[in-house]
Design a protein around this nucleic acid. Structure first.
Ligand SMILES: [Mn+2]
Ligand SMILES: [Mn+2]
Ligand SMILES: [Zn+2]
Ligand SMILES: [Zn+2]
Lengths: 140, 140
DNA sequence: CTCTAGTTGCGAATGATTTGCAACTGGCAT
DNA sequence: ATGCCAGTTGCAAATCATTCGCAACTAGAG
């Protein structure tokens, strides 16, 4: 039970030639189960619940490996620690509520298209980008 | 001689109630004279040329004060160190050439407008944002 | 089952940035 | 001009997130 949706991330790891060890299984599961943007400490905390002995250095190393293989995404949001999320179905950018720290995702085909357009005008080819919009709830 | 263009930044500091000390004069001058996006070490190097005794902790502290008063802008660009630039006449975003590290500025009214639009749709008010586009020169 | 390169735990090392503290010094008030 | 004192500085030590060295494991190919 609970094995619904054969772990895509684990399969992708295998394809990337990564060993599927106990600590990694735990980390992958936590990543898949997370729908927010946790930092390393928080991921470590979550992973310990299923794999108590895990060391935070292992979490760091595994996240680096996963991110080098483009299996997860790394974010900054300017609060000093790096945050992570699984690669989404569809690319999105983020609103960060500066009052609550809440992160809200959004998609804008128009903005994406305009980026391509302006990059082309400058003779550049886009490799990646990040659009972080720091916001505050509208006074109603 | 060379005192052309009475230092706007210094005046803004005075208005903000900051003391204009020797070390600060030097830092402000370097910031005004820089048209790139130097990091703290580089700024420290440049400041030492006009004020040899300055300590890097002072540079850090001053940059923090200036940035808290919105007199300069802080950037990340994902290379581990924080970079700075004076607040520009007109807001702009950045291309970062991942091969050379070169930073190129651009302005897109359209993208700015779309951000406002989408933020409004989500019930947010934009406080600030950052759009960093990591690029590579087009194969000609 | 064996063997080995990949992985892990642990503690020490890094590197950027911050901080405690005593010694200075702008610049407003006499 | 002179004095005063909160803001500032230099220096060294402390933080904080992240990385690394290394010896002990172990996944998984053959
Ligand atoms: Mn996201
Ligand atoms: Mn710029
Ligand atoms: Zn985007
Ligand atoms: Zn912008």
């Amino acid at each position: 039970m609970s094995d619904v949706g054969a772990s895509n991330l684990t399969e992708r790891c295998r394809l990337a030639g990564l060993r599927i060890t106990g600590p990694r299984k735990a980390i992958l599961k936590v990543l898949e189960d997370s729908s927010d943007h946790p930092d390393v400490e928080e991921l470590h905390r979550r992973v310990k619940r299923v794999h108590p002995g895990i060391n935070i250095a292992t979490v760091y190393r595994t996240l680096n490996v996963l991110s080098e293989h483009d299996l997860i995404e790394r974010h900054s949001f300017d609060d000093g620690r790096t945050r992570y999320e699984t690669i989404p179905e569809e690319h999105h950018d983020h609103f960060i509520d500066i009052d609550t720290g809440e992160v809200v995702e959004f998609v804008s085909e128009e903005i994406e298209a305009m980026q391509e357009e302006i990059a082309r005008r400058h003779g550049f080819e886009i490799v990646s980008h990040r659009l972080d919009i720091f916001v505050r709830r509208r006074d109603p």
